[in-house]
Design a protein around this nucleic acid. Structure first.
Lengths: 209, 209
DNA sequence: CAGAGACGATACAGACCTGTCTGTTCGAGA
DNA sequence: TCTCGAACAGACAGGTCTGTATCGTCTCTG
């Protein structure tokens, strides 16, 4: 038993390079929280699944709330990494760059393991808007807003502020409707809907000119 | 004690006409579930708040799950009543009738007591898609889809199916973004965004003609 | 007036939750 | 070799949850 534990901590370097105890807890919690909901997963389950002692969990995270916040931040980190990856791969045409990000979102919400936007789920699960997890979730959604705005700024539309808000609303709608309706939901039309909104502003801009 | 209980059950007819024990439980549960989240409210709290015995709750509802389902159905009942009310008040112009419903939704999500769409919240709170509460929630969202479709059908657009899905996505986005962002969210632009999508289809229809 | 049933009050079982505490093992550095 | 900290193992406290069981009271109906 102690032998296998020893072997794991040694060989783990090869299989999962330098995955610390903290990371193991964090990754396990992230997976469990997302799959079953935060309130449905106790710390004991996280401890058991990550093969770690309870004392270790509470050494690295002072409370379950702190763990939740850390999980959300890691979730956001990965999301923005994906965003940046898509940004780097998409060309120079502003319109295409926006489409690429939206297509990325569609791909995300149609994935087999999709179970809703983690940040919206946390907002639904914790009624208290002052809860630290909700504060983090809100900040992340604001960041999404800023990133959409940056894309919209390059489109040369007459009212970028309005278009940004409308696109964010569409994106939020894609997140939630994919969760509610599953495979065959409205979210499949996200790119088309966004295109229509952009066109509407471009037409308006041309008329005004 | 027994005197006051007697008086209540008699005078209650005047104050809240024939509010049965079942209704009292249902209304209290609805309020508590919505305000604090379903999983955060125990049956004991519902019992205490509604001034009823626990045995009564379990007489009328075989389990908490059954109570949740009943609450959601009542919630839906009221929502459709509001929809029909708006429909009856709005004129004959299809475009205006759609706008009226969307404006009603904006009014709903900007209300001071708004804490998210109950049916989306339940979807986030219960990870298991087979949970009875989620089944009900999904059916209600499908009904919303059908009602939007009925409005779109009168608009004479070339692709009512697509427009319906896009509008539903917008509506879902309004529900969730209002919850995340609070007062100053994208949801304020719901009517304008929907207008843009409708226009886009009407323009396309004219071009094809 | 008598029986039936709705209701209130409350104790209880059994499970689960978060967070603490004690004691042990093991490896790395002084 | 000795020491110290990280990690493991597991018991525990104090609270919450759902659902059941018990018992007494009220009200209506025949």
């Amino acid at each position: 038993m102690s032998k296998s534990a020893k072997a794991r901590s040694t060989e783990a370097v090869a299989s999962a390079p330098t995955e610390t105890v903290r990371d193991r807890i964090l990754n396990t919690a992230r997976d469990l929280f997302y799959r079953h909901g935060i309130n449905s997963v106790g710390v004991d389950t996280v401890v058991a699944q990550s093969g770690v002692a309870k004392t270790s969990l509470y050494r690295w995270f002072p409370s379950k709330d702190a763990l939740i916040v850390a999980v959300l931040e890691k979730e956001a980190e990965d999301r923005w990494a994906g965003w940046d990856y898509t940004a780097a791969r998409s060309g120079t045409d502003p319109r295409e760059r926006l489409r690429a990000q939206l297509a990325g979102i569609v791909k995300f919400v149609t994935g087999p393991k999709y179970r809703g936007c983690p940040f919206m789920n946390v907002t639904a699960e914790f009624a208290d808007a002052q809860h630290p997890a909700r504060q983090v979730a809100r900040e992340i959604m604001e960041e999404l807003r800023r990133r959409v705005r940056a894309l919209v700024n390059d489109l040369n539309v007459p009212d970028p502020q309005t278009l940004t808000e409308q696109l964010v609303m569409l994106i939020d709608g894609a997140f939630s409707s994919a969760q509610v309706f599953g495979k065959e939901g409205p979210h499949l039309l996200l790119v088309a809907a966004a295109d229509a909104l952009v066109d509407a502003q471009l037409v308006k801009g041309r008329e005004a000119r």
